[in-house]
Design a protein around this nucleic acid. Sequence first.
RNA 1: GCGCCUCUAGCUCAAUGGCAGAGCAGUGGACUCUUAAUCCAUUGGUUCUGGGUUCGAAUCCCAGGGGGCGCACCA
Length: 502
Amino acid sequence: MNDGPGTDEPTGSGLAAERARRTAHVEDLRGDGAEPYPYRFDRTHTLNDVRRQWGDVDSGTETDDEVTVAGRILLWRDTGKLIFVTVGDRRGELQLFISKAVIGDEAFVAAKRLDLGDLIGVHGTVMTTRAGELSVRTDRIDLLAKALRPLPDKWKGLTDTDTRFRQRYTDLIVNAEARRTFEIRHEMVASFRRTLAGLDFVEVETPVLHVNAGGALARPFVTHHNTLDMDLHLRIAIELHLKRLIVGGLERVYEIGRVFRNEGTSPRHNPEFSILELYQAYGDHTEMMDITQRLIVTAAQEALGTTQIDISGEGVDLADEWPRRRMIDLVAEATGVEVHPSQPLDVLRELAGRHGVAVQPASSTGKLIEEIFEATAESSIKRPTFVTGHPLDISPLARADRDDPALAERFELFVDAREIANGYSELNDPVEQRTRFEAEQRLRDAGDADRGTIDEDYLRALEFGMPPTGGLGVGIDRLAMLLAGVDTIKEVILFPTLRPEQ
RNA sequence: GCGCCUCUAGCUCAAUGGCAGAGCAGUGGACUCUUAAUCCAUUGGUUCUGGGUUCGAAUCCCAGGGGGCGCACCA
């Protein structure tokens, strides 16, 4: 689109002409000694404040109560010498009653030059129209910022998802649903912080730039530090740094932050996403399940005002019991065949093939069980369910189950067929951890780019002694999707990753 | 990365091989209680881009670009 500043004067309509018209308005104001972009404006009430305080005033009442409000012009109904304007701020909308007789001839003429999209500050008295609409009987209007571009249609809004995500500012102006979604996301994260503060956790910030990105199975982004002249990876998890802090004696730590995984996008994946990771000394995976449930139920209550949510058309109360089911049991139920990582590879390969899993030659028995789980049982999990007892060989940082050395003391929380959280009893035996790292390194060398490397500094930390520890990671974006009731991750990320325009 | 779908005015959408249109927004006019105000008039187009087929292409074909969905990868 050609939307550069026009030097000549477009006539007629269209975007260029519209911008020229509005720019001319700005010039005219400056010519008259007015400031179209003043530095500040002090309002006495938000639009919802006015509603709360005067919402029950009878129809046709004019009060003497003065208010100063601000907002963006969203609708304009001009009946000649009386104009009704709907303005909106971040949480509400309110009508302005602009009467020529009240505001005066000169100001009325100036008001008529305002456009949809302009930001204005208004002084007046609170009234209710004969039709019962709460309004501000306006006696003064200040232009706070001129909008040079026209807004999308107020009622149809934006439908093109590309435009909505690229121009999120426009989406947020016209789409109350979008504003609500991000408000829920904010409340959810704020709730996490309150809950964790109540449990005596401390919030920390650890490096995003890693020499070797570890703590998860994923391919990292590579970047470069110029003066150190070295390649660095963006972190794929926060885990290993937080556990160093457990070694350091911080006992209860968490970080809410961004991690980066060099993978494709989907309705459930964005290359950068947000995660809450927390670690608690002297706890194990069962305690982590309790905390997960508490964090999420509390967040739902505080962000939505209820624990009742809709999961693909089905009403679910998050406050109900969350079942804890072993992965191998769920697979057995779904396939009718008992499975265990100790079984011969051939048996599991055959079962995987029968359920449509594309078997990689390098897949271990544990990996096959996980894939069979994903192919058969995962999609039927709607209500919150802890899937536990993952095969140990796909859980290189988790402790072995105290009753079954082939399984990990690990859980993943699934809701609506999506993984929301992951936690375990943390492996704190440095010798065992080295063996696991070495196995990862071998798989990596064999061509599995998602596998990890040996992190010597982390091993050194463990050698100083890490207390028994429970760890948890919660996918912020996916949980926000669940609470906001949206079905793509781009709806809960303000600026999702997109290819550049043009 | 592969497959399918999609892209028309600032926004929302029509036009299915035969004159590129409507509603909203904009512009001009009327109106002092509107509620997506209403009424009259009216401006506005690189039909994503580049090729091709055809007397004629928004429409059919090819290539490219953006987006969506599915698969793969993954949380």
